[in-house]
Design a protein around this nucleic acid. Structure first.
Length: 353
DNA sequence: AACACGGGGCA
DNA sequence: TGCCCAGTGTT
């Protein structure tokens, strides 16, 4: 292939982007706060998944002050099902910092915006380029895949160091006149044309500028080493109802997996059935009488899987720990729960009390 | 550098 | 199943 022609590449990419871009809710605003929210939601999460969450979230928290003042439980409930829940806690921390320190104006330099909680190198560049039109790199998985092909970069994109190679590359070729369309065009291309498997090169606007296409290597890029396998954890989960038609629930620790979310009493899986009652007694101060088997569930997280058996029955409270509460059905609807618990709760409700 | 951190969609 | 997704924070 000829020398890489960045002028031609920019024009082809941006012309295509402006013509073919999808209509997405966060593309109808230039409010840096809303762009910020969208970028956080989009981390490791597909566009189609994000759309309804974004609309609901902006409706609930239309301004940066609304989010700064929100109650954490309400925030988590909005985020329920999206995953990576620390994102929303960090987002609120960042937003509060902007309200307090920057007079509610999202900073427009990389140095300042990068100090905000939850704003890493990608998100900083995305907000700066999209909301402020600054020529800053925004390197995500799409950009690494697209440019590994276009520029025939054969570094392992699983390695942290490799991101810098792509940041330098973007800094070299980014369009100074429309960095927003350039960055979004790269990502849009990665999402719709230059896909991980079977890239649609015949539809690609920058096919003529693509070294991998020229070399016939588009299916061998990017280079990426494999992840390790996830470990399994085995739990029994108990839905315990008392005489006042309340259910015992527990708020998880404020750090770690599913921090601050609510779950039903859950213990490491029991080998001998007769150990159930004393364990629930000691762990939860709960006297439990098993009535129904709600079935088995497997839930896969990014780094581990939960294999769960679930049961319902009658519970008598003795001494409930600080982290636990008896909640009515209506109250349970207001509380943020991880998807595995939602599945078990749904199974219970479908069995008709 | 390696790992923790969710959940869904797709080959 | 395993991979991938508009990644960041912690260790």
């Amino acid at each position: 292939m000829n020398e890489f022609n960045k002028i031609e590449f920019r024009k082809s990419l941006i012309d295509w982007y402006l013509e073919e871009k999808r209509n997405l809710p966060w593309r109808e605003t230039s409010d840096p706060y809303k762009i910020w929210v969208s970028e956080i939601m989009l981390q490791q999460t597909r566009v189609d998944t994000v759309i309804p969450y974004y609309n609901r979230f902006i409706e609930a928290f239309p301004t940066i002050e609304d989010l700064a003042n929100a109650d954490e439980e309400k925030l988590l409930k909005q985020w329920e099902g999206l995953g990576y829940y620390s994102r929303v806690r960090n987002l609120q921390a960042g937003v509060r910092e902007v309200v307090e320190t920057y007079n509610s104006v999202v900073p427009s330099t990389r140095d300042e915006i990068s100090t905000l909680k939850g704003v890493g190198p990608y998100t900083a560049g995305a907000i700066l380029s999209i909301a402020y039109g600054r020529p800053e790199h925004a390197v995500d998985g799409n950009v690494m895949r697209v440019l590994s092909r276009v520029l025939l970069i054969k570094e392992d994109i699983a390695k942290p160091k490799t991101r810098k190679t792509f940041e330098h590359a973007v800094s070299e070729i980014i369009d100074p006149l429309d960095p927003s369309s350039f960055n979004q065009g790269l990502m849009e291309l990665g999402a719709t044309i230059c896909t991980p498997t079977s890239p649609k090169c015949l539809l690609c606007p920058v096919r003529e500028n693509c070294a991998a296409f020229y070399a016939g290597e588009q299916n061998d890029l990017p280079i990426k080493t494999k992840n390790k396998k996830t470990k399994a954890q085995h739990y029994d989960v108990y839905i315990a109802q008392n005489d006042r038609k309340q259910f015992l629930m527990e708020k998880r620790l404020e750090t770690g997996l599913l921090a601050n979310m609510w779950q039903f009493p859950m213990v490491e899986q029991i080998i001998k059935d007769e150990e159930t009652v004393p364990l629930l007694q000691s762990r939860y101060g709960l006297h439990f009488t098993k009535e129904m088997d709600l079935g088995s569930f497997k839930h896969v997280f990014s780094h581990l899987t939960w294999e769960m058996n679930s049961f319902s029955g009658h519970g008598v409270e003795t001494s409930v720990p600080e982290t636990c509460k008896w909640l009515t059905i209506e109250e349970i609807k207001e509380v943020p729960m991880p998807v595995p618990m939602l599945k078990i709760w749904q199974a219970y409700m479908e069995r008709g009390k």
